[in-house]
C-alpha cells in the first residue's frame, strides 16, 4: 500500500485516507471580471502536466481533514516531500 506523509498528523498514513486535489499553487485571479475567455480557460483548465516532479494538492480527508501540498514524481509515483498549505513551493 502507498503511504503518504501528512504534514499535519506528522505520520505516514495509508493512501486510502487521502483525496487528490489537483495541481498546487494555482492562484485564483484577483479580479475575475477583468479576465477574457482565454485567460479564464487558462486558469480553470490548463495545467502543467509535467513528466516528473509534480506539485499537487492532497487532502487528508479521512484523517485530520487538512489540505496540504506534495511533490510527487509522475513517472515513479514516489512522493518526494509533503508540506503544509500556505508554505512556499519546494
Amino acid at each position: 500500500m502507498l503511504l503518504i506523509h501528512c504534514p499535519y498528523c506528522d505520520e505516514k498514513r495509508p493512501e486510502i485516507e487521502f483525496a487528490y486535489g489537483g495541481e498546487a499553487h494555482i492562484a485564483r485571479p484577483h479580479d475575475p471580471s477583468t479576465l477574457n475567455d482565454e485567460e479564464w480557460e487558462g486558469h480553470l483548465f490548463i495545467r502543467s502536466n509535467p513528466r516528473g516532479r509534480h506539485h499537487e494538492r492532497w487532502r487528508h480527508i479521512h484523517g485530520c481533514g487538512r489540505f496540504f501540498n506534495a511533490v510527487r514524481d509522475t513517472v515513479t509515483d514516489k512522493f518526494e516531500t509533503t508540506y503544509k498549505a500556505g508554505e512556499p513551493r519546494r
Binding site: C9, P14, E17, H62, G63
Partner: peptide
C-alpha cells in the same frame, strides 16, 4: 489500513 501495532493506547484518529 492503519498499522495498529504502532497505535499507542490513548490515541484516537479518524480513519476508514
Amino acid at each position: 489500513p492503519l498499522d495498529l501495532d504502532r497505535m499507542q493506547p490513548g490515541r484516537a484518529t479518524r480513519t476508514v
